[in-house]
């Protein structure tokens, strides 16, 4: 599970480079997120625009990543593709996470 990461001022942007966050890679994803966000700004935006499939294991791994950053640090999600967005809506995770259609939308909304 490859991630890329960059810091822009007070925000860290982590992009998922794989197309799936499913049971086969969920633990790997959780570990990679921990490593990428070990130090850094309080706000982390996870760019999911390359991901076209997520299952309940992947959803659980994103929840784990968010809980690992909390309470001091915050995880926002950007670039959800339709199938991924549907999983967040069905499970009502859209009421838990801040979701943005694109990375730019997330930047504009969250970065002063």
């Amino acid at each position: 599970m490859e991630l890329s990461s960059k810091t822009e001022g007070q925000v860290q942007i982590v992009a998922v480079l794989g197309t799936r966050i499913d049971a086969a890679v969920a633990i790997e994803f959780k570990d990679a997120m921990r490593a990428e966000t070990a130090n850094g700004p309080d706000l982390v935006i996870l760019d999911l625009s390359a991901v076209d499939f997520i299952d309940s294991s992947g959803l659980g791994a994103i929840v784990a990543a968010m809980k690992h950053l909390a309470p001091q640090r915050r995880l926002a999600l950007a670039g959800l593709t339709p199938t991924v967005d549907k999983v967040f809506k069905l499970t009502r995770m859209d009421s838990v996470f801040s979701l943005y259609p694109t990375l730019d939308d997330a930047r504009n909304a969250l970065v002063a």
Binding site: S56, L59, G60, A64, A70, T91, R92, S95, V96
Partner: peptide, 25 residues
């Protein structure tokens, strides 16, 4: 059944969504 997500962030379950998705879809 739907997982209750109206809880403190740190109490949010990391699993239990699979059967809900099956039964829902």
């Amino acid at each position: 059944l739907p997982v209750n997500v109206d809880v403190d962030l740190l109490d949010l379950p990391e699993g239990g969504y699979g059967w809900f998705l099956i039964q829902d879809l």
